[in-house]
Amino acid sequence: MSDRGQNKTGPLRDDELKRELRGQLPSGHETRAREERALEPSGEDQPAVDPMPVPPRPGSTPPGVTPREVELRGELARHLSRRAYPLHRDELVRTLRDHHAPDRLVDLAARLPDDRPYASAQDIARGLADG
């Protein structure tokens, strides 16, 4: 990686570079035994560079969404297609049964109020999580 020009790399070289960094990124420290392969430190007039500026958050949920909503949304997405929306409660229950959804999910959907259409899996998950 001593070439610092403007040349672009192809997918094979990208994969090779990923393999080279595979141990370093999760560990958060240098894993190279040979000094010439180590990442160079920042210059005196440059800010310190973190190889992984934002650590991954396993099991995290997006802001404003509960973990239960994420779980329900995933289950719904496995059993509903994008063409299915918007759905009312009865259509949702029928579609879930047609796609062999678990009884627990069908029972939850049957408890939803039928006074409004549901525009997405997230919308349904929010209703199920609230109920």
Results as ranks from 00 to 15, higher is better:
D107C: 09
V54Y: 07
R104P: 06
H99V: 07
R111Y: 04
R116L: 07
G64Q: 01
E30Y: 03
D3A: 11
D15F: 12
Y118I: 04
A38E: 15
S60I: 01
G64M: 04
L96E: 02
R111C: 10
D114A: 15
T95R: 15
M1L: 12
D98A: 14
E91R: 11
A48T: 07
P62G: 09
H100C: 10
L25W: 04
N7F: 11
E35H: 07
D14I: 01
P56R: 08
R89F: 06
R82L: 09
A109I: 03
P113Q: 09
H79E: 10
G74C: 00
M1S: 14
Y118P: 05
D3T: 12
P113W: 04
G59S: 07
E16C: 02
R126K: 15
H100L: 11
T9H: 13
A33I: 05
A77W: 02
H100S: 15
G43K: 10
V106I: 15
L87W: 00
D123W: 04
D123N: 11
D114G: 14
Y85R: 06
E71P: 03
D50M: 09
E16W: 05
E20V: 04
R78M: 13
A125C: 08
P67K: 02
P113A: 11
I124Y: 05
S81F: 09
R22V: 07
L80I: 06
N7R: 15
A129E: 12
L128K: 04
R82P: 03
A48Y: 03
V70W: 03
E75I: 00
T66N: 00
V106C: 12
H100I: 06
D107N: 12
H88Y: 14
Q6R: 10
V49M: 09
V93H: 00
R68M: 02
T9K: 14
L96A: 07
P51Y: 02
V54E: 11
L39D: 11
L105H: 00
R4H: 14
D115V: 03
V65P: 02
L12H: 11
E16Q: 09
R94N: 12
D98Y: 08
Q6L: 08
Q6P: 01
D50Q: 13
P26C: 10
A48S: 10
V70C: 03
E71N: 06
R116W: 04
Y85K: 02
M1N: 13
Q24W: 00
L21P: 03
K18H: 07
K8G: 08
D103A: 12
E16N: 05
A77E: 11
P62S: 11
P67F: 01
E35D: 13
P55F: 01
M52R: 13
R82T: 07
R13A: 14
L108Y: 00
R22C: 01
P67Y: 00
P11H: 15
R97E: 15
H99Q: 15
E36N: 07
D3G: 09
A48Q: 10
Y118S: 07
D103C: 01
H100G: 10
E40A: 13
Q6N: 10
G131Y: 07
S27V: 15
E44N: 12
R94T: 10
Q122W: 06
A125K: 04
D15K: 14
Q24N: 02
L25G: 03
R82V: 03
P47L: 06
G43E: 15
E69P: 02
R126L: 08
G74T: 07
A84D: 15
